[in-house]
């Protein structure tokens, strides 16, 4: 466009358009370098987080951290036994497992409903909207909700309250991936199954689920990774505990809460233990994420 305007004035047109061309090239070059810098900044943060975690976390990581329960600080008493995080690891495993076990079937059914029964219907659209809002809603509010609903009536913090809060976080993650994966299945497959005389529910459970299995599994893995690191809702529901507990009706420890409490304790030895906990949880969460991606890629 600009070249035509310049052709209208003959004097010096060539020189000016070449100046314009080089100016455009320079702007392009500057933007290119700015964008590469932006990408490097993003990668730098990931690298910085991982390096800090490995450096601080490995320094204090040992067998005791993985096998012992919480002990008070050794500050001022070198002979006192060192504590660990096993109570928190077990608590996290229990709550994450129960949360996933409760949330997954609900999420799976809702995703199925959206993809197979409610395409384009008003209820379906509302449901998709609500699920998306839940997906990004502040997780601490889910903690407040469960506090009012479960903790108050039960009279105190409990492991089951924590698991329920996590289950609510699992549901929208599973809904989203299940719906997406079921929609990728070609309609011809569905028609073939129905054409053989199978009822719709068998078409869904025996054929569609099987065809979308790896995608659905990816969703569940992502949900597990998401709740394994959740802290805020647990603070208001299972609260944390300094001993190993398998009793779902009392306060239960969890890795994120243990990290939170020990990192803010102010004692150097407890902060070190918090760092090894942080390393454990991050490696776990990132590993699950990468496995989830590989599962999905293996399918294609």
């Amino acid at each position: 466009m600009s070249s035509t305007t310049f052709q209208a004035e003959p004097r010096g047109a060539v020189r000016r358009s070449s100046a314009l061309a080089s100016r455009r090239k320079i702007v392009d070059l500057i933007v290119k370098w700015l964008c590469m810098t932006a990408t490097l900044i993003g990668l730098f943060f990931l690298a910085s987080i991982m390096a800090t975690l490995l450096w601080r976390g490995l320094a204090s990581m040992d067998w005791i951290v993985l096998t012992e329960e919480f002990r008070p600080t050794r500050y001022g008493d070198e002979n006192a036994p060192k504590g660990g995080l096993i109570h928190a690891i077990l608590g996290s495993l229990i709550q994450t497992a129960i949360g996933t076990a409760i949330g997954t079937p609900i999420g799976l059914l809702v995703g199925t409903y959206l993809s197979e029964y409610a395409r384009g219907s008003a209820l379906g659209n509302t449901l998709r909207f609500v699920s998306d809002v839940l997906l990004s809603a502040p997780s601490i509010l889910i903690g407040l909700f469960i506090y009012q609903l479960v903790v108050l009536p039960m009279g105190g913090f409990s492991g089951i309250a924590g698991a329920l809060a996590l289950a609510i976080i699992v549901i929208p993650v599973v809904v989203r991936t299940t719906e997406d994966m079921l929609q990728l299945i070609p309609n011809t497959l569905r028609e073939a199954v129905i054409g053989l005389g199978a009822p719709k529910w068998k078409m869904i459970t025996l054929v569609c689920y099987k065809a979308a299995a790896s995608g659905i599994l990816t969703g569940i893995l992502l949900a597990v990774a998401r709740i394994a690191g959740e802290t805020a809702p647990l603070l208001l529901t299972s609260f944390g505990n300094n001993v190993t507990s398998f009793d779902l009706t009392t306060a239960m420890a969890s890795l994120p809460i243990a990290i939170y409490q020990q990192a803010n304790s102010g004692f150097p030895d407890l902060i070190e233990i918090a760092w090894s906990g942080a390393l454990l949880i991050t490696l776990g969460v990132l590993a699950i994420n990468i496995i989830a991606r590989l599962v999905l890629r293996g399918r294609n």
Partner: peptide, 22 residues
């Protein structure tokens, strides 16, 4: 590079908190 950026979203918020603090 895309995967690395997406992994930033997977890091738990408590880790951002600790890293931020220290």
């Amino acid at each position: 590079v895309g995967t690395a950026i997406e992994l930033l979203a997977a890091v738990p918020s408590i880790i951002y908190g600790m890293w931020g603090l220290f």
